[in-house]
Design a protein around this nucleic acid. Structure first.
Lengths: 166, 166
DNA sequence: TCCCTGAGTTCGTGCGACGAACTCTGCCCT
DNA sequence: AGGGCAGAGTTCGTCGCACGAACTCAGGGA
């Protein structure tokens, strides 16, 4: 159907840094999986319950060919699953559902959304809010350390190199 | 120097959804700002302390022209600031520093990194760890609600439409 | 039988990424 | 003063991907 190698940018280029090795950074690896145009928007819709090709296409307005490619990529990265289904009176079709690996991308979407709400929404016109299913209170992302402190921001974080190159 | 309009995908396409209006979603807006190739990698390096053009170029290996464009975009989006500086015995140059708006993108990077660490690092070879500057404990992202509960995952979240279209 | 819809595939065009080469500026050395 | 050097771009040719429109294919219904 379609050949695709994982091309991972994690191993691109001869960097040979004075600092630790940046080419293996997980950010680059993750972007190699979901960083292409439309991928994150596809996932946003998936989290909102969209499953069928036509619905993705209609809601996003992405070109069909691109959408076909992005869905296929996400499927063979294990982020989505292609599941057959049959609506009564119709022939068998496929739908795309999040796997656990895909569900675990939720914080990425939440972080993007939170930033957009803060800096791009005009006059507090936030289009979508996340609430705790149990208690109904609004939900936000927080950095917490294993000692239980909730950090106030990036300045309280210290990046520490690890692994064989340390 | 370079003209750039904010082109925001937030208003693209006539969607007219049965569900709430997806075209104003903050995820798309944020991606219009930082979703281009290399932008997030530039920010990753900025968080690790990189400030000068040549250092970005050397560490990332991105083509100069692309890097020039991405830095300019991030500057006129207000994510980076172009600051003049003068090293002793050199002529005046510029460096790129995170603004508060840029620093607030930290959770996005952390979320991408966490997912990559979980799913892409072979045999737990995590290249970089984040620790609380004060207590030294490892730090992770969490969803917490305003009642103080820490949610276990995306399934405990309910998205609620808001604003004029509700 | 023809038509319709969902899910693609094909195709021509054009923009954007790429790497190499060129430019411009001001400091340093001789 | 002249030449070399380095940082920060800019220019250019190529090549690939994104785009939108048109085409295909399968099955169900009128």
């Amino acid at each position: 159907m379609r050949v695709r190698q994982v091309n991972s940018a994690r191993y691109a280029g001869a960097v040979s840094e004075a600092l630790w090795d940046r080419s293996r950074c997980s950010v680059a690896g993750t972007l190699a999986v979901i960083g292409e145009k439309w991928s994150l928007l596809v996932l946003r819709e998936a989290f909102l319950g969209v499953r069928r090709f036509a619905d993705f296409q209609r809601v996003l307005g992405a070109p069909r060919a691109v959408l076909t490619d992005r869905l296929a990529t996400l499927v063979d990265q294990g982020v989505l699953r292609r599941v057959p289904y049959q609506a009564p009176g119709e022939r068998q079709r496929h739908e795309y559902r999040l796997t656990q690996k895909g569900i675990d991308l939720h914080p990425v979407l939440v972080a993007l959304m939170a930033w957009g709400d803060r800096y791009l929404a005009e006059d507090d016109d936030v289009p979508l809010e996340l609430r705790h299913r149990d208690c109904g209170e609004p939900v936000h992302l927080a950095l917490v350390c294993d000692a239980g402190h909730e950090l106030s921001g990036a300045r309280e974080v210290r990046p520490v190199p690890r692994g064989p190159g340390a």
